[in-house]
Amino acid sequence: MTDQLRIGTRASALALAQTGSMADAIAAKTGREVEIVRITTEGDTSTESLKNVGGTGIFASALRHALLAGECDVVVHSLKDLPTAPADGLALAAVPKRADARDALCARDGLRLAQLPGGARVGTGSPRRRAQLRASRPDLEVVDIRGNVDTRLGRVGHDLDAVVLAAAGLSRLGRSDAITELLELSPWPTAPGQGALALETRAGDEKLVSALEHRTSRITVSAERGVLALLEAGCAAPVGASAMIEDGLLFLSARVYAVDGEHQLTSSHAAYVDDSADPAGEVSQRVARELLDLGAAELAPLGSSGAAEPTDASGAAG
């Protein structure tokens, strides 16, 4: 291996922005020269709904194939796009410091969610966001959409009154000015791992990017993703989760929604980080077990592929 580190990424604007920031950070911390390798995935070229082409695992699979084939040394994922099942021969080598995990409403005329008129058309490609919108405002018309961030924002004020996107993605693209309301995590939990990036390497090469590891972010996203894995919740399951560490205590809350948003189940638990060898695993097991005991498997479509929540061809949701 030369001193040059090759970073694989999807070629969307958001993926390139995320990868560019990671390339700069790696170069600054390690002194290595970095080359960005663009990789096209089926999710980038298909116009079908992600449910029909395999969920967001289609974004990760092409990057992982390139990594295993030696076409690059590390790949950058939006962590919410990464299936929870481990990949043979690969390692989640680093979770850098997480950005804002919240969803953002981008509406016409500066409107907030509560201010949208009855019948307003709100666009999203996420089953979780559809369920949350229906639960919060059953009088709205929720429209299934795809496309990159600019395409989605460009529809606001035309055929849509608003769209819901990830605050982190908007920030990374310099489009936070479009946000009219940040949806707080307690009433509006987001996809497990939202706002975080994942640096994946071949097993044994973790040291290439270990300098970017942020322990708190790793623990919180592991707790959130642990719930997703234990529920066997795939891309069609409306599941939100939010974890945080405060005063040494790991708090995790997860919510499962009926597809129509009419019913929901919530579980919240906590554990002291220093009292357990695996606090994320411990607390996620408690939360998942309680949700299943409450009837989550009957409420929502669980037991699917173990993939993450769908975004879109640009990663706009994530």
Rank of each mutant, 00 (worst) to 15 (best):
E282A: 15
V273P: 11
L208T: 02
V287K: 02
L170C: 12
A258M: 06
E262R: 15
K207Y: 09
L228T: 01
S222H: 08
A271V: 15
A270G: 05
G248F: 05
E206V: 07
L183S: 05
V283Q: 06
G248A: 03
L183Y: 13
V227K: 04
L249E: 02
M244D: 07
C235S: 11
E290I: 10
V221G: 05
G234K: 06
R215Q: 12
E246N: 09
D205A: 13
L212Q: 12
L252V: 09
L183T: 08
V273R: 11
R215K: 13
S242L: 01
L252W: 02
L212E: 13
T180H: 05
H269I: 04
P189C: 10
G204F: 08
K207Q: 14
H263G: 04
A198V: 06
R225Y: 00
L208Y: 07
V221Q: 08
A280Y: 03
A288F: 10
S253K: 04
L231Y: 02
T266W: 07
A236K: 10
S267R: 01
V287R: 03
L183H: 10
A254V: 06
L292S: 14
E200R: 08
A237N: 03
T180K: 07
L291I: 12
A271E: 13
A243K: 02
L291R: 08
Q194S: 11
L250N: 01
P189F: 04
A229H: 14
T190Q: 01
H214L: 04
A288C: 09
G261I: 07
P238I: 05
A223I: 12
G195F: 05
S276T: 07
Y272N: 14
E213N: 04
R255I: 06
S284Y: 08
V256C: 08
E224R: 14
R202F: 12
G240N: 13
F251K: 05
D293H: 14
A223M: 11
G174D: 09
A237K: 02
A277W: 07
A280L: 04
